[in-house]
Amino acid sequence: MSQFIQDLGKSTRTSFTKLGRSTYFLLQTVSGILSVLLRPRLLLNQMYSVGVLSFLIITISGLFVGMVLGLQGYYTLSDFGAEETLGVMVAASLVRELGPVVSALLFAGRAGSALTAEIGLMKATEQLSGMEMMAVDPVKRIITPRFLAGLISMPLLAGLFSAVGIIGGQVIGSGLLGVDEGAYWSQMQASIDFQDDIINGVIKSVVFGFVTSWIALFEGYDAIPTSEGVSRATTRTVVNSAFSILGLDFILTALMFGDH
């Protein structure tokens, strides 16, 4: 029994230290933003590896998710003779939920894990300490550009995901299943509100980009510098990112769309 109490105390202590370290790490990262903006080349390189390399997986998944929504939505809506509202269904579910959430999950799997492994390996091979020896701040030089790149890329990727998905839904809906194309777009435009839906979706994706990059970079920076430690840190990144994305999505949805 006393062992259990002791374990509980220990896990509480370690989780609080981790929270404190990650917050301190975040503050350090954010404080480096100005110096990164003065050297946009660093940011650009990371935009390439974080954003451009995730581009293909995001667009293809977006297309398929939109097509599936079109197909499933049509089957359900046609029971009520309401196929014309297919556009609303596809667009609302993509813009509000699936666009930000699914692209953030893919982003965590594609870019977040790579970031953790990269930083973790840099730590394991003592590149980070090497930089400190040369009086180069590794957080400003390595971490902040990656963080900023994730923060910028995420809303762009989520917007792309939703846009491609809506086009995919239209291809299936009006190309294959015979929903009127004009009704698809006009019903959508009548129901989707710019402020309520599009802007809130973008806010969601910015929040997810923030959280995913933070988790990925911190786990890499905090990894035990062995091959096993790095592999564990990578797993933790994906798992923790998925949890935080889904949990935060619930909270954000409740806050944003609660009054409807």
Partner: peptide
Amino acid sequence: FVAAGILGLFFLAMHVS
């Protein structure tokens, strides 16, 4: 990539909403 992302958001704003 940036142009495509902005285009996507623009498409959402003008054509969907």
